[in-house]
Design a protein around this nucleic acid. Structure first.
Length: 260
DNA sequence: ATGTCGATACTTTATCGA
């Protein structure tokens, strides 16, 4: 089973890129972030025509996550627990039945948090603490579980082209990396790092300053696996090609193959 | 040093968020 995650930066602006990539890569499950689309305006039929069940959690203008699955959803749960006043659409959880049992999926668009030192940075860290609490509870179920999405965290210096230039950025601040590590320390596996140890493998290149042409990127899109999912990991790959397409997202897809 | 993009609104240019 192939599970992909991709921050598409606007579903309406990226509908052609999304369908082209889905037809070519043919994932069983796709997690999209930054759909920037209210639920009633989401073009679900386009993906249903490609054979996907569609679950969405969006809002006007910003954020927004969507889950596509060729297998039907047994459960769908939007919103991250821990703050009932949080209205930002950044979390969508689902359960599907697979031949070996169940598979739980969590699609996240983790807050960017810039500028460092502001209420936005505090919101990022608080959101990460809430995510850790939720994941900690779910790990007790001992299910195969995949937490996929745009984490807006550069885990290590080898995951950024020029670490010294990013020292004060919310994506690379020690506080952000510590929260990410605390999440992993619950017992999760970074799928990409379980399959690859080479530095400078990126999932994001800024639109500005010719970052793509100069390969000045970041690795901030991740798939974290519960022990039961990690046992089934067969492969993890980044597909950089869509960054070179016309009208690209600034992120590219990353996917895993799980034996289920 | 700068360089971009998508969505939105007191809209056709400015602002925000990234």
């Amino acid at each position: 089973m192939k599970i992909a995650t991709w921050n598409i930066n606007g579903i309406k602006a990226r509908i052609d890129a999304a369908t082209t990539w889905l037809k070519q890569a043919n994932p069983d499950i796709a997690c999209f972030q930054e759909t920037k689309c209210q639920d009633e305006a989401f073009p679900a039929h386009v993906f249903e025509d490609l054979g996907y069940n569609v679950a969405i959690h969006g809002q006007k203008g910003f954020n927004g996550v969507a889950l596509l699955s060729k297998l039907p959803f047994d459960e769908v749960r939007p919103k991250l627990a821990g703050d009932p006043d949080d209205v930002q659409a950044r979390y969508l959880e689902a359960v599907i039945s697979v031949p070996s049992g169940v598979l739980r999926l969590i699609n996240i668009y983790l807050p960017n948090g810039n500028p460092f030192g502001t209420e936005k940075f505090a919101y990022k860290l608080a959101w990460m603490s809430r995510l850790r609490e939720r994941v900690k509870g779910l790990l007790a179920l001992e299910e195969p579980m995949v937490i996929a999405g745009d984490f807006n965290v550069i885990p290590a210096p080898e995951d950024v082209y020029n670490p010294s230039a990013w020292m004060d950025d919310a994506l690379f601040r020690p506080e952000s990396r510590a929260h990410f590590q605390a999440l992993v320390n619950l017992g999760l596996t970074d799928a990409f790092r379980a399959c690859h140890d080479e530095p400078h493998r990126f999932t994001f290149w800024d639109y500005q300053a010719g970052a793509w042409q100069k390969n000045q990127g970041l690795r901030i899109d991740h798939l974290l696996l519960s022990p039961q999912a990690a046992d089934r990991l067969q492969a993890c790959e980044i597909d950089p090609a869509p960054r070179g397409w016309e009208k690209p997202s600034d992120h590219v897809p990353i996917w895993i193959e799980l034996s289920v």
